[in-house]
Simulated scan of single mutants.
Amino acid sequence: MIQSVTIKGFRSIRNMTLALKQLNIISGANGCGKSNLYKAVRLLHEAANGRLSQAIAEEGGIQKVMWAGGHRAGDRAKDPKRMILSVDMQDYDYQMEIGFPEPLISLFALDPLVKKENIWLSGYQRRRMSELMERVNQAAFLKNVEGERMSYPMTLTQEDSIFGQLSDPHLYPEVSQVRETMKNWRFYHEFSVSSNSPMRVPQVGIRSPILAHDGANLAAAFETLRERGQSESLYAVLEKAFPNTQFYVEELGGRFQMMMKRAGILRALESAEFSDGTLRFLCLAVALLSPRPPSFMALNEPENSLHPDLLPALAMLIAEASHYTQLWVTSHSPDLAEMIGHYKEVQHIQLDQKDGETIVVAMSER
Results as ranks from 00 to 15, higher is better:
Q54H: 12
I56A: 09
I56V: 13
E58I: 01
E58Y: 14
E59H: 12
E59M: 14
E59N: 07
E59Q: 15
G60I: 09
G60S: 06
G61S: 05
I62L: 06
I62K: 00
Q63D: 15
V65N: 02
M66K: 02
W67Q: 00
W67L: 01
A68T: 04
A68C: 01
A68I: 01
G70H: 04
G70R: 12
G70A: 08
H71F: 09
H71W: 08
H71K: 11
A73V: 07
G74S: 03
G74E: 10
G74A: 03
R76C: 07
A77H: 06
A77P: 00
K78I: 10
K78D: 14
D79E: 14
D79F: 03
P80S: 09
R82A: 12
R82G: 05
M83V: 02
M83Y: 04
L85C: 05
L85E: 06
L85M: 06
L85N: 03
L85A: 05
S86N: 06
S86F: 10
V87I: 15
V87F: 10
D88S: 13
Q90A: 13
Q90E: 15
Q90C: 05
D91Q: 15
D91W: 15
Y92N: 00
Y94C: 00
Q95N: 01
Q95I: 01
M96L: 09
M96F: 13
E97T: 11
F100K: 12
F100T: 03
F100P: 01
P101W: 09
P101D: 12
P101S: 03
P101H: 09
E102Q: 13
E102G: 07
P103D: 04
P103R: 09
L104N: 12
L104D: 13
I105K: 15
I105N: 12
S106V: 02
L107G: 12
F108V: 01
A109L: 12
A109H: 11
L110H: 04
L110T: 11
L110C: 00
P112T: 02
P112W: 09
P112F: 08
V114C: 03
V114Q: 06
K115R: 10
K115F: 10
K116V: 08
K116M: 05
K116Q: 13
E117M: 08
E117S: 04
N118W: 14
N118Y: 15
I119E: 03
I119K: 08
I119L: 13
W120N: 00
W120H: 08
L121S: 02
L121F: 04
S122T: 14
S122E: 07
S122F: 11
G123D: 05
Y124F: 13
Y124I: 09
